[in-house]
Amino acid sequence: MMHVVIQQLCKKYGSKQVLNGINLTLGTGMFGLLGPNGAGKSTLMQILATVIPKTSGDVQIGHCKGGMNVKFVACLATCHKSLAYIAS
């Protein structure tokens, strides 16, 4: 059973804050993100899929906790079938 836990996740591009203190816990199942353009949906998914680094906060996917480091990415490879990011 894989859970996703996000705590105080933030992302900045220069001085522009695009994600600010996101807290989210997801259990098993299928979920979608809904929101207006510019709300940070793609940014959040790119962080979860390790496409871009977070500025601060904690991300845990299954038993893997971390960010854009080699250990976290290698850990995610063990559960790659459960997480996907499809670019628009």
Rank of each mutant, 00 (worst) to 15 (best):
T50G: 01
L48A: 02
K41I: 00
G40M: 13
I47N: 03
G35A: 10
D58W: 05
Y13M: 01
G35F: 04
L26V: 12
Q46S: 05
A49I: 06
V5I: 13
C10K: 14
T25Y: 04
V4Q: 01
V4Y: 00
I22W: 12
T78I: 03
V18Q: 01
K11C: 00
K41Y: 00
I61K: 06
Y85E: 10
I61G: 03
G38M: 09
V51S: 03
L19T: 06
G29L: 09
T78F: 07
Q46I: 06
L26R: 09
M30G: 03
I86P: 03
N69S: 10
N20H: 08
K11Q: 02
C79D: 08
C10M: 12
A49H: 09
T43L: 08
G21Y: 11
N37V: 13
T28E: 12
H3N: 11
P53W: 00
S88W: 05
V70T: 15
C64A: 11
G32S: 07
T78C: 06
M30F: 11
L33D: 01
N23R: 11
L26I: 11
V73D: 04
F72P: 01
V5E: 15
G29Y: 15
L76F: 11
M2R: 03
K11F: 06
A74E: 13
K81I: 08
C79R: 02
C79Y: 14
L44V: 11
C64L: 03
A87V: 04
M45D: 03
A77Q: 14
Q46R: 15
I47V: 11
G21P: 07
T78V: 04
L19C: 02
Q7A: 14
K16M: 15
G67W: 11
H3E: 09
L44T: 08
I6D: 06
K11A: 00
L33M: 10
Y85I: 06
A39D: 13
P36N: 03
T28Q: 10
L34T: 10
V4S: 03
T28C: 13
K11V: 07
S15C: 11
G32A: 07
V51A: 04
G35W: 02
G27P: 04
L48T: 01
P36D: 12
F72L: 03
I47P: 03
G57W: 14
Q60D: 09
L19F: 12
L19R: 02
N23H: 15
Y13L: 01
Q7P: 08
T50A: 07
